[in-house]
Design a protein around this nucleic acid. Sequence first.
DNA 1: GAGGTCC
DNA 2: TCATCTGCCGCAAGACCTC
DNA 3: TGCGGCTGATGAG
Length: 741
Amino acid sequence: MGIKGLTKLLAANAPNSMKETTFESYSGREIAVDASTSIYQFLIVVGRNGTQMLTNDAGQVTSHLQGLFSRTIRLLEAGMKPVYVFDGKPPDLKKQELAKRHSKRMDASEYLAAAIESGVKEDIEKYSKRTVKVTRQHNEDCKKLLRLMGVPVVEASSEAEAECATLCKTGKVYAVASEDMDTLTFGAPIFVRHLMGSSRKFPVVQYEVAKILKELNLTMDQFIDLCILCGCDYCDGIRGIGGQTALKLVRQHGSIENIVEKISKVRYRIPENWPFQEARCIFKDPVVSVSDQNHVFEWITPDEEVLKNFLVNENGFNHDRVTKAIGKIKAANYRSSNRRLHSLKPWLRTSVPLKSKETKCQLGVPSAFLNPKMFSLQVYMHLRPKLLWPSVDELVRPVNLFLGVCKELALFSSYIHVSSSWSIFFLLFPFQALLLLYLMGLQAFFDMDAIGRLNKTKYECLLFDMDDTLYPMSTGINYACRKNIEEYMLQFLEIDASEVPRMCLELYKEYGTTMAGLKALGYGFDNDEFHAFVHGRLPYERLKPDPVLRNLLLSMPQRKIIFTNADKAHADQVLSRLGLDDCFEGIICFETLNPPFEPNSYEDEVYKCLSSEEPDYNLLFSDSERKADAIYDENDDSLLPKSQILCKPSLESMEAAIQIANVDPKKTIFFDDSVRNIASGKAAGLHTVIVGSSELVPGADLALTSIHNIKEALPEIWEEEEDQFEQVVQSTAVETVDVLA
DNA sequence: GAGGTCC
DNA sequence: TCATCTGCCGCAAGACCTC
DNA sequence: TGCGGCTGATGAG
């Protein structure tokens, strides 16, 4: 039931809080969608003819799959990035409401039986719709379908609406698309209704909670009380008090407690044991899944073969239709990966002093014909032949350029995936094509049975990420850190409060750290000040000494190095609190990868290049990747400014870390909690272990739910090395690393 | 835009 | 008299393609 | 499930 009469109430009292928008206007936006409501609608309407619905050969209903499949493609094609949120365990207070619904379904079943007996077609149709219930199996089918389509799925701890609202509040999605008005009561900052309405009968309407509160002149707590008084899923209101009266009373008395105290007990009967406080609690502090604050949703390439098998073989879908639909998803993903870069442009144009206008040299030109950023990270990682990059700086320039062209061609061919294109490719670039095939063959060889390799090779070095890898996310350090960053953006960079959470996350996603993104956008602030503000007041006291991990680390015979994006002060503090400060040979941190800026070097090169009679842009291009100044050309819509900061997950940072630590990537295991860092680590040739996940992610050789399980999962670390001598010799070669005091 | 079809 | 609330009923609720 | 339409009841002004 949502909130009784809230639509009308808002239309009458807060008309400016809602505005008509269009389906297309959400292009490029992450949208949280309540899955259950959608599935319910599909079951009611898709392919229904009386009691008959779409089914597979086994007679199981497939209407929900048909509906969800086409709707999701519709959203993706429009450039939206849906995140489907599934209901968890309903709160106890909702049981009464659920029982009511159950009873209604029972009644409908009886009417349906009677209608079937009498053969009245309209009645059969009507009552069969009323018996629809979304079962666990329906939900599981849909989750499977979405995952195969590469669309993120969230399993809510409790109410999906609450989870959606939290995703929106924390900036992980732009808006929540739902029909249920209590999404607003859960505090979703942007709430969209009728987004999915195919009939176009109702326009798409966007509500903003902040505007509602402003117009109604209520605090969020008062708005929640108003909704409870109107009547919600968790408890009835007071008989005789509807929307208008409730609004008047809340404005007048401020809270339900005061209203109950002041109103006439003759006129209004307060329900006995009225659980308004519990209901308030559900809205104010809903049970939501404790997710990684930095978790990034990803819309990945569909698992084509498995998806086809699921839809065509298991559920009787038409093969050609499915093939065509998968093509649409791929095309949408491709467009979206380009669009994502554009999404940062508004900040560039409106709120940021553009840097580097004075630099006339177009450093990106040599690779402009195929920008690697056009391709999804996965494709990029898998096809990027490691052997192309032995040590870029050591290669002579012409070879470098030639290899660069090969890389682009490899990426290009990896994207198109069309056999006929190979023929054209061979005709046009026979030599490159042969080389490419050779390299791809090598790559395939090196990618074979990664875990097998992990088991067979001996290791010399273990590279550890620190935050959320050496201690669990549940400490809340990460969350506190993010809040501090948001606070910094608000206070010192004067970024609009409504933009901060989203911008914080977008930049994190695009650049690896928000700081790197801010720098890339041209925000001029002092790195040390930023770190001091962000890390200076973290709740470090929550980190307790971890003797178990300490013993594990000390018993490992390999070199152990920290590789973190954080600054050294933070790393010192964390390791000290965990009692691990003497477990590592060194720390590769922010300062290691981003030493204080040295004038003369790069500028000189630019100057030299431009002032020469025949400027060799390649000379600058190769270095630009490493030194990365903020270059942004207004006329070029495909390029974002590069970050001045070298940090994970960039491949350059991985290669730099490998070089600084002086390790052989083939004999190094990289532990990290971030999917992107792992993918990047793999691309750099490292063995990779995703920490904090029970499932393998792209690029990971192994998954560890906790770093404490390392001995069970990787016993070979402790196996006797055959030539320890080699290790000892290598371990002296890390002088450049910031060694812990 | 109506009507048929998806499985 | 008017505003507000209640309760009941009926209706629609996807998306794509072809014509 | 949500909404509009309708009807009748109720209470404030």
